[in-house]
């Protein structure tokens, strides 16, 4: 079995938002919608104050609450662990948006463009009407993952079949691969570091691992 996961080394992330921009470029999300974001969290009290950059998106949970509540089966979990949405089935009821504890989903009810109501040529070319009025979120760049299956390339190793955010990360904070393969980069990295998954207490079993220290 294959289970694709993402690793994010919080020790390395510098909050540059390059992954955010890369995601936007790769997926042509409308203004105001970011499938990937990097949050800036300040904690502690003066003078012991810490700042953490936290990249977040869909966690591609092994036990996705969005899939459970979806009344249309538009949201499904694939055999390789990716949680995907069929835009042709979704009715835009937003139940999945409420069920997701990671603020990962959004619905756009009307087309929005960067400058007023008129799309720029680049926006018009990539506008996808099937994404209006339905739920959408990070797909782990599933087209690339699907291409891996036919090309024989390895996600997380070969850039052509690796999510755009991972490819773009300037500090090497993000990793991607098959956690079921003990020789994969993510498996080896997780074996030698301490990490957590967000909101694990909710039983969602997220597929994104945040590294915070060495073993």
């Amino acid at each position: 079995m294959t289970r694709y996961v993402m690793t994010i080394d919080l020790r390395r992330c510098v909050g540059c938002q390059t992954c955010t921009a890369a995601c936007k470029g790769a997926n042509a999300t409308p203004p105001g919608i970011q499938w990937r974001r990097v949050l800036d969290i300040e904690s502690g009290e003066f003078p012991d104050v810490k700042r953490t950059f936290l990249p977040v998106a869909c966690m591609h949970c092994a036990n996705p609450p969005c899939e459970e509540v979806c009344p249309t089966q538009a949201t499904t979990k694939r055999a390789d662990g990716l949680v995907v949405i069929d835009y042709d089935l979704c009715i835009g009821c937003a139940n999945c948006v409420m069920a997701c504890p990671y603020d990962a989903r959004s619905i756009v009810h009307e087309p929005h463009y960067a400058y007023n109501d008129t799309a720029m040529a680049s926006e018009a070319k990539r506008f996808d009407p099937s994404r209006i009025g339905v739920s959408m979120k990070c797909t782990f760049c599933k087209d690339r993952i699907d291409y891996a299956a036919v090309s024989g390339m390895i996600p997380g190793v070969d850039h052509e079949v690796t999510p755009a955010c991972v490819n773009s990360c300037i500090s090497g904070a993000m990793g991607f691969g098959d956690i079921e393969d003990p020789e994969s980069g993510v498996s080896r990295l997780l074996a030698e570091t301490q990490h957590f998954r967000m909101h694990e207490e909710l039983g969602t079993e997220p597929g994104v691992y945040y590294i915070w220290d060495k073993s």
Partner: peptide, 14 residues
């Protein structure tokens, strides 16, 4: 109806 919000259980080593 406030969302869960996002959190870090551990602040990373820097």
């Amino acid at each position: 109806a406030y969302t869960q919000g996002l959190a870090v259980p551990r602040i990373p080593v820097r």
